[in-house]
Design a protein around this nucleic acid. Structure first.
Lengths: 295, 295
DNA sequence: GCTTCTCGTAAGCTGAGCCGATGCTCGACG
DNA sequence: CGTCGAGCATCGGCTCAGCTTACGAGAAGC
């Protein structure tokens, strides 16, 4: 019988690509991961890893095993969720991940609602980098997280995770000192998030769709700061609706036919966990008016 | 995350009913099983076992958990089977369980066929009591087993196991010193298998269906011996076709409208294991003519 | 060239988990 | 009603699976 603990390591390896990263994610030493994968390989009787350069890659047999591992882990998650249903009162910690603007706009109201429904629940919110949300959920560091996707940045479905339908949909705005379209800002300096973030990619793609490559001047993640820079004449930027709540004088917002959608993500199989479904319900009630569920 | 090792103990407990039996089946001490189940109960956070009299019974929550455990274990079995597909040559032991008459009539031909197809395979045949086949398969002591069922003895589907369609179907005969029907043997002494066996139950039910309770004289499991006793005038008996290959003089067989069906059983999820499906194919080719697959 | 990053192996240690012994409770039986 | 056996839980002690730390080998980058 294959050991699920070891299958989990293999699954993480498939996602993270390196043994060191798996060890980091699951709080082990790299050596421990390497040893356990060796044992798994032995009890599988088939080569699973092969060294290519200074990394390892998974053989086709290993990839097949990962597929099964996903299913097994989702099933175990579901069993845990069903177990939680039989407990009387919902209690214990619920670790929530979120991106900054939702943390300010949505989370407080949702937590208040949640506390009214389930006083025993102890929600713990952490601001997390959207890129690391998947790994944090799979590693068990988070139970549920708010994630977003842009029209122009297709969110590749991560195996092992599940998403709700969009909780709300925000329009995007072009922020400048005068009304205008993206195409008209070909020559303007741009303010956008640091490279590697979803927002950065989204802004670059939007400019490319308008036929030019943006000239980047400032790289700032916080939309309040971004709008202050716009007001100071430092450039133009694309901001989602939730980033516009503190709009400084002098900034003009032009609504664009682009949208950002926010969903809740959790480990596959955990969607039926009462704490998570309660939190999702609380989010629904806390969505500000005007940002309907969206498609 | 729930531990699959412990879930397996809970599953066995659901089937076997007592911690001592689980320990026996999995080669542990009862104390180890008790300890592991306690840990499982703690990490589930919900009562799973309650003592009733001097045994334990499973709570509804535990039964739900068992259902999930079945699914997880089947999935793991399937993963192992798929892994075996990627190996080049089929090799290693294949532990086969069988009831006695099939062992004599079917198994030798099937093994010869199997050896021709896969020389690396090492089949190991064990005669096992049909009542214990399920436990032996689940405990991993057997990989595949031949089991049979009678018309009058419905085989309740055991969770965690899977059955093939019937490999062959034998007619049943009334063995006596003259032709006759069951109803005509109301007053005759009967020879049947020891109580607790399927054959015993089958004979009793057949007599009850004919309107009487059989007077039991001898309790013998081996059909060759049974027929010898019939020839010696010691009574009448019901025997399946495979039990009639060595028919002593003086015995008259009357064919009855009753049948015994033989199937292969294995752990759920293992049906796609190449060694098991090869063995089932070999069985099909080794079925004696005249005993078509049947329904 | 050297540095850095990664994986694998060896050696040693710690704790999870096993066994055996003991005690308790419940049911069967005379 | 007393005795006995079956079954489960708990305690103490031990063993080994599996972790960490330390080290070495090979590949990429400067």
């Amino acid at each position: 019988m294959l050991d699920v603990r070891r299958l989990r390591l293999l699954r993480e390896l498939a996602h993270l690509g390196t043994i060191a990263a798996v060890a980091e994610a699951l709080s082990f030493s790299p050596s421990a991961v390497s040893q356990q994968l060796s044992v798994l390989e032995k009890e599988a009787g088939v080569p699973l890893l092969e060294r290519t350069g200074r990394r390892v890659t998974l053989t086709p047999a290993a990839l097949g095993l990962v597929r099964h591992a996903e299913a097994v882990l989702a099933l175990l998650e579901q069993a845990g969720a069903e177990l939680a249903h039989t407990k009387r009162g919902l209690a214990g910690p619920l670790r929530i991940g979120t991106y900054p603007s939702a943390a300010r706009a949505i989370i407080p109201g949702a937590l208040a609602e949640l506390a009214a429904w389930h006083p025993g629940l102890e929600p713990m919110v952490t601001e997390v980098d959207p890129a690391g949300v998947g790994a944090a959920l799979r590693a068990g560091e988070l139970d549920v997280a708010l994630v977003h996707e842009y029209d122009l940045v297709p969110a590749d479905p991560e195996p092992g995770l599940a998403l709700t339908r969009p909780l709300f949909t925000e329009p995007m705005y072009l922020a400048g000192r005068a009304p205008g379209t993206i195409a008209e800002q070909r020559a303007a300096p741009w303010i956008m998030s640091p490279p590697g973030t979803l927002c950065h990619t989204m802004t670059v793609r939007a400019c490319e769709a308008a036929g030019f490559a943006p000239r980047v001047r400032h790289q700032i993640d916080d939309f309040t700061t971004v709008l202050a820079l716009v007001a100071a004449g430092q450039g133009v930027a694309l901001v989602p609706h939730l980033g516009t709540d503190r709009q400084p004088p002098g900034v003009v917002l032009t609504r664009l036919p682009m949208y950002r959608r926010t969903r809740a993500a959790f480990r596959a199989g955990a969607g039926s966990h009462p704490a998570i479904s309660a939190f999702v319900s609380a989010l629904h009630t806390a969505v500000p008016p005007g940002l309907g569920g969206g498609s």
